[in-house]
Write a protein that binds this DNA or RNA. Structure first.
Lengths: 232, 232
DNA sequence: CTAATATTGTGTTGTTTTGACACATTTATG
DNA sequence: CATAAATGTGTCAAAACAACACAATATTAG
């Protein structure tokens, strides 16, 4: 048995971030064009190495802020990818986080300066290394969580309508939902507060604008809600 | 921006394993007495460093096998703990896995030789570093998953009775369930196959022994089942 | 000004699922 | 053979759900 840590191998550790956004129609990812070798110029997740004196969550925050200009966004650790040969240069672990942001909130300048783009999940290009696998697992996690917890609101503006929320869920799960049943289910959670206002940008009947009941959202976040129809 | 990896810090990376077992009454953890400094002699999770040419999952398997003598057990990556000061000797990341095993299957010799012990969750001693936090999060994950997926069977013998399964769920969630409703719910999943045999070690009416419908278990594992009563 | 069209809000209905509860059966024990 | 403890199964009312219909609102075309 080892007596101290002297003989153990030290490894490179990266942080990669999967950033989801929703434009009202489609679920999108914020991807960058990699700017150093190897795989320079290829599509990639935003990432960076863990700093010596920095907690993992802080590192994720730093990387997310660097690209989006945002603070205090929804971030969750996904999992760590550690296949020996996942990076051809040198073995590198990647601690992967996924974030949900309001697609209209990001800082255009930072995004431009990183040659980053919002790309629809359905038109995702080839990504470097194992980043596609990361995205796949993140999507599974998003689908999993959004079915049980009111996580979807993180992708919407402060004020939103029920039809918008429904479109979001339909985008996440790539299916159609019954308008009436969805509305009933969402309203029954008590998570929506009527703002009294209506959605101005509508060519037909203007939908009621709601905002999140933050108190209830936070105190009941870890409860199970059943937002999606159960398919057994 | 960095052009290669040369200037980035390399970190020590450990793997720690949370091993759950069930003795028919209580949920237990397999813990070891640490055999090197720092914190020598203190209670700890089983762990080790990641080998240079070893995938993370393989490392977890290796560590689990070293302690229990078992292969092919249920293992899942929990998350990575990376607080800068979590290890006083040197910054060490820990990729944490949790495992579910049949408590009667482990190799007594290996367990003894590691000064390991099955300890009830309710009598858990102080653990080194952030291992208590890891256990707490693993328990949350277990509770989460077991409410939605038929993960509990991993903790039981090949053949089991419905009352045994119920006791397991009651131990996981630390609550009492209605016998009749539980039975109805479990049987309605179609996951249980009647073996035709009955439980011999019973002082009263002998319960029917079931075994898992492996086919259905595997093909439907990622479906949602709702094993636990919903408390909103 | 009105009809047509698109979208939103709300109600109904029959079926299924759930939670609370009761009773009969099995088996070791005295 | 009566008792005690545990197991298997049944009932019933309330709640939740999926499927569906209709009325209200707003824009646009004529």
């Amino acid at each position: 048995m080892m007596k101290n840590y002297a003989h153990s191998t030290r490894l490179l550790v990266a942080i990669d971030c999967i950033i989801f956004g929703f434009d009202g129609e489609e679920l999108k990812l914020l991807l960058i064009k990699r700017r150093f070798e190897p795989e320079k110029g290829k599509w990639s997740l935003m990432g960076g190495f863990v700093n010596e004196e920095e907690d993992l969550e802080v590192g994720a925050e730093r990387i997310l802020h660097e690209l989006t200009g945002l603070h205090n966004i929804y971030v969750e650790q996904l999992q760590t990818f550690g296949k020996v040969d996942r990076d051809p240069v040198e073995r590198t672990l990647s601690v992967v986080f996924f974030a949900l942001i309001n697609i209209h909130n990001h800082d255009e300048e930072s995004v431009k300066s990183h040659s980053a783009c919002w790309i629809s999940l359905k038109q995702m290009p080839k990504l470097i290394f194992d980043h596609e696998k990361m995205v796949q697992i993140a999507l599974e996690r998003l689908r999993y969580k959004a079915a049980l917890h009111p996580i979807g609101f993180e992708l919407l503006p402060e004020q939103f309508t029920i039809p918008q929320l429904q479109k979001l869920y339909e985008a996440i799960y790539d299916l159609k939902l019954d308008r009436r049943n969805f509305s009933r289910k969402i309203l029954s959670t008590g998570l929506l507060l009527d703002t009294g206002e209506k959605n101005a940008n509508s060519a037909t009947k203007k939908a009621i604008l709601y905002r999140l009941n933050k108190e209830k959202y936070e105190s009941n976040f870890n409860n199970f809600w059943y937002f999606m129809p159960v398919t057994t």
